[in-house]
């Protein structure tokens, strides 16, 4: 039926029966020898199209797959030979991030000034700027009871434990403790020496697991 069917939207007349449909197409797929050399240009060009696409695909994957390495996230990079490259992190940057990430800033505020009468300030605090022995212990294990900072007594709140010790809700590594202390001791005009992870680790090893400190206990330390 080569005559186009008349327009009938309610019915949409068909021009081919199912049997003839199957038969006609089966013939097209048949593997008969092509004696007449009837192949048309189109299938050949399709072959070229597909080959071109595959060539492109191979090239693209070669250039931008990072050699299928599970550690390569940047499509322009190649797998790193010989171990993992350790990236140096600035402890102050890490400390700033830790301080402001709903941990320290909740009480001591972003300004480090605390809340008058409730949370002691860190700015110019003798505890922060004083000996490393005390300040490391405070952050590692916490501090309970009355403490005097810059001549004012604070006893309303307790400092929680941040280190990897029993009962800590934070479980920060010694690196993180050192970073946040370094940040606190050098921010807002504070100017005390940086604290290294090794110093924290030494005190952590010496004290082991213990409960929070009190100000009197700390005062006995050098």
């Amino acid at each position: 039926m080569s005559t186009p069917p008349h327009s009938d939207p309610g019915l949409e007349q068909a021009a081919a029966s199912d049997e003839s449909l199957l038969a006609a197409h089966e013939k097209l797929l048949g593997k008969k020898p092509d004696d007449q050399a009837n192949y048309r240009l189109l299938p050949l060009s399709l072959l070229f199209v597909f080959s071109g696409l595959i060539f492109f695909a191979g090239t693209y994957l070669n250039l931008y797959s990072g050699h299928f390495d599970p550690h390569v996230y940047n499509e322009h990079a190649l797998p790193h030979k010989g171990g993992v490259e350790v990236v140096k992190i600035d402890p102050r940057e890490l400390g700033k991030k830790l301080f402001n990430n709903a941990a320290c800033n909740t009480c001591h505020q972003v300004t480090g000034l605390g809340q008058p009468g409730i949370y002691p300030p860190l700015v110019g605090s003798e505890w922060v700027l004083g000996t490393e022995e005390r300040v490391i212990r405070i952050v590692l294990y916490g501090l309970q009871g009355k403490v005097t900072v810059k001549g004012t007594d604070y006893s309303a709140a307790a400092m929680p434990s941040f280190g990897k010790v029993a009962g800590s809700g934070f479980n920060w590594s010694d690196d993180k403790i050192a970073a946040v202390l370094t940040y606190v001791r050098s921010e807002w005009g504070n100017n005390a020496a940086a604290i290294t992870a090794a110093q924290v680790a030494a005190i952590h090893a010496k004290e082991g697991d213990r409960k929070a400190w009190t100000a009197e206990e700390l005062a006995k330390l050098p």
């Binding site: 597909f50 696409l53 492109f56 695909a57 693209y60 994957l61 390569v72 499509e75 990079a77």
Partner: peptide
Amino acid sequence: GPVPAWIASLAIVSCVLLLFHYFVVFM
């Protein structure tokens, strides 16, 4: 995204290869 680069690259290449399918459907 935070996935190895080859996953996205493979998907891009697959989208391009599918053009063959779309072209034949059109033909």
